[in-house]
């Protein structure tokens, strides 16, 4: 007992090499964990939007951390500065790392240059969730939306990301005006 109180690990976590991240685990383990998280959040809120916000917050915790690991591991510390490259990075690298495959589609809204959509027909997090009838609008992929939001914010592309039932699940990404202006000013460079 005594040693537990006094001795700290001699080697801090930053001294250890970063794992290559190739490991994988039984999907059931993740599904059980995620299910408990959804139930936990549900017990602490009253409305569907509140629940989705909670899930998004949890996702953001994951997003900020995966962002650091990815840029360290894959991009040699270099962050994206162009909007389109950033979005493609999310659609391909981030998705592949987390879910083993790219997201299905990336689209730009016709009527609003601030809005982009990432479409995923069958998101992993929704695989084992059956939405109760009285909560039809609930989409637990709000968790994934939170991950995307954190990744974008962490790279200097402030945005709000939400998950909707449309063509499977559609993540709606609304960037701050400033992001679009900045990107336009960089055109041609």
């Amino acid at each position: 007992m005594e040693s537990r109180m006094t001795s700290r690990p001699k080697q801090s976590i930053l001294d250890k090499p970063l794992s290559k991240g190739k490991g994988d685990l039984n999907l059931s383990s993740f599904a059980f964990l995620f299910s408990e998280m959804v139930q936990y959040c549900q017990n602490r809120v009253h409305t569907v939007p509140e629940l989705q916000q909670k899930l998004s917050d949890l996702g953001q915790h994951v997003g900020f951390r995966i962002l650091d690991t990815l840029f360290l591991r894959e991009k040699n510390y270099k962050r994206e500065i162009k909007l389109l490259n950033m979005l493609l990075f999310v659609k391909t690298t981030v998705w592949k790392t987390l879910f083993g495959k790219e997201a299905d589609k990336l689209e730009h809204a016709n009527d609003d240059d601030k809005t982009y959509y990432i479409v995923e027909k069958d998101p992993l997090v929704n695989k084992f969730i059956s939405v109760p009838k009285d909560k039809g609008s609930l989409n637990c992929a709000a968790f994934t939306a939170g991950i995307v939001e954190a990744v974008l914010n962490g790279c200097g592309f402030p945005a709000k990301v939400t998950a909707h039932w449309h063509r499977g699940t559609t993540y709606m990404i609304k960037f701050d005006e400033a992001v679009i202006l900045r990107d336009k000013s960089m055109e041609g460079r």
């Binding site: 685990l25 999907l27 987390l98």
Partner: peptide, 8 residues
């Protein structure tokens, strides 16, 4: 079926 250990 498998899922990324890091996601977990």
């Amino acid at each position: 079926k498998k899922v990324s250990a890091e996601l977990f």
